[in-house]
């Protein structure tokens, strides 16, 4: 049903692409072997963004990562946005397409944040229907990413890893495991991150994300971590990556750094660290 001949992401380090790193990437990308872009940034009609993307796609496998489809939305998917996504994927033929277990649009207002969902049977059916629609429209398998959680829903009846496993089983989609999100959610909601990854269907994971988080406090003085993508990956998240890779084997590992974007040496140093983590399980 899907095009299985398309390129896959390599089991190496990748980075979220930022235009200020274009020259550095063309000159010497090591150790970076692939790039991820946010789909919505490349939905203009032309100009530099698309010209750069075309040039990069000749050198790197590209992962298209959507942040605006609102797969968990109560309403129908925006057909115009889905059509734009198809146009981008047909033009680029990326090695991967991924989106989030979240919602961001309500009553046609786009809120530009990955908003949380109650894990119920009703949510499950709705998300699976939306993923079916996305995969049918794009003609390719997608990956679905676990969110960072700051709160829980009292009506939830599913644990998140089970919920994602069931979505993957019903729709045939793959999963994107963000280990920083696991660490953030575990701290915020009081569970052990390694219990989460142990329960996660690692055989379905097509990509791993890493990013930095900020630290805050909740009303009771308990730590509240914020998924900011604005700094280095924290040490306990690197440890969680090691534990995960030992169980999953090598995977494409992405460094996300989206705010206060650093210079190339700082970002590539993070990619070097991901490269070392992968070497440990490749050896």
């Amino acid at each position: 049903m899907f095009d299985t001949t398309m390129r896959r992401l390599p089991n190496g380090p990748g980075v979220g692409y930022k235009p200020q790193h274009y020259s550095a990437l063309i000159a010497d990308p090591a150790p970076v072997t692939w790039l991820e872009i946010h789909a919505e940034n490349y939905m203009g009609d032309g100009g530099r963004p698309l010209a750069q993307l075309r040039a990069l796609s000749e050198r790197f496998p590209i992962s298209v990562h959507g942040v605006g489809l609102s797969i968990g939305g109560e309403g129908p998917l925006d057909p115009d946005h889905l059509a734009r996504l198809k146009t981008l994927c047909d033009w680029l033929n990326p090695a991967s397409f991924s989106e989030h277990l979240a919602w961001s649009t309500h009553d046609s207002a786009f809120l530009n944040d990955l908003l949380p969902l109650p894990y119920t049977d009703a949510t499950l059916s709705r998300i699976c229907a939306h993923i079916d629609q996305v995969q049918e429209t794009l003609g390719r398998e997608m990956l679905l990413e676990n969110p960072s959680s700051y709160l829980a829903f009292s009506e939830s009846t599913w644990a998140e890893p089970d919920f994602l496993r069931e979505i993957a089983r019903r729709t045939g989609c793959g999963l994107l495991l963000d280990v920083n999100n696991v660490f953030v959610s575990a701290t915020n909601l009081g569970f052990r991150p390694q219990d989460y990854t142990a329960a996660f269907p690692l055989d379905q994971v097509g990509e791993i994300h890493l990013g930095g988080h900020d630290e805050d406090l909740d009303d009771h003085g308990a730590p509240l971590l914020i998924d900011s993508h604005g700094r280095e990956v924290a040490d306990p998240v690197w440890s969680l990556l090691d534990i995960t890779l030992m169980a999953s084997g090598p995977r494409p590992v992405l460094i996300e750094w989206d705010t206060d974007v650093p210079d190339w040496p700082t970002l590539s140093a993070e990619a070097v660290r991901a490269h070392r983590a992968l070497q440990k399980v490749l050896a």
């Binding site: 700051y150 709160l151 829980a152 829903f153 009292s154 909601l189 909740d218 009771h220």
Partner: peptide
């Protein structure tokens, strides 16, 4: 219906 990890209001 929004809570922290221990069932208290999310605040």
């Amino acid at each position: 219906g929004l809570t922290d990890g221990e069932g208290r209001p999310a605040g």
